[in-house]
Amino acid sequence: MKNLTPEQIKFIDTYLKKSGVEFLDVRVEMVDHVASALEEKLEEYSACNFYEAFKSYMIKNKKSLLKSANSVKWSVDRKVLLSIRKELFKIPVLLVGGGIMTTLVNVDIAHLEKNLWFQISCAAGIFTAYLIPVVLYIKQKISFLNRLSMYAYLINYLFFLLLSNVEIPADWLEVIYGLLVWANLGILLTAFKMSAYYKKQFARL
């Protein structure tokens, strides 16, 4: 089997990136698929060169490739939500979340300045979302981490809306803050765990 050169692989990668396949984890798979198909074609038709084979492949399959790349969002969202749920119900997370909630009840937070908690809520969301790419250490976009950041923002924003627009009784305020901390704990642990997972996977790149 005639293997493609690193320059030819780079050419396919750049082409797919420019065509809108922005996530590294998705693109890696597409590049391998296209490269495997081209290698087979070049083996079969020795007179054919790489660029002719590439052009002919893309004319026939580009639509299907991009459809596949775009549809990944739905399964990634499902994976993100299932991962967060898995972390939330782990015993250490429940214990830490419960401990923080108990502490909040004991310090009687209802007497604290409400705006302070808005700021904490926003800061938690921004911190969580920005932390993820920092933890990853690589400059590439990973679909899971990108969607996780989006959910980190969304969850914190919903808490922010609730706290700023609804008059919540003092007894319930501690519960809401406890839930906010618990949710962010789950997001943070998912971010750390999955960042390490993707870093290990793509360190070979």
């Binding site: 798979e29 597409m30 698929h33 399959n61 639509k63 299907s64 490739l65 459809k67 596949s68 790349a69 549809s71 990944v72 739905w74 399964s75 990634v76 499902r78 994976k79 299932l82």
Partner: peptide, 17 residues
């Protein structure tokens, strides 16, 4: 099997564990 059918199936099965 086209790419447009195979990869969404694989990704869904992966998301489902």
């Amino acid at each position: 099997i086209t790419e447009g059918a195979l990869y969404p199936t694989l990704h869904k099965l992966e998301a489902d564990g």
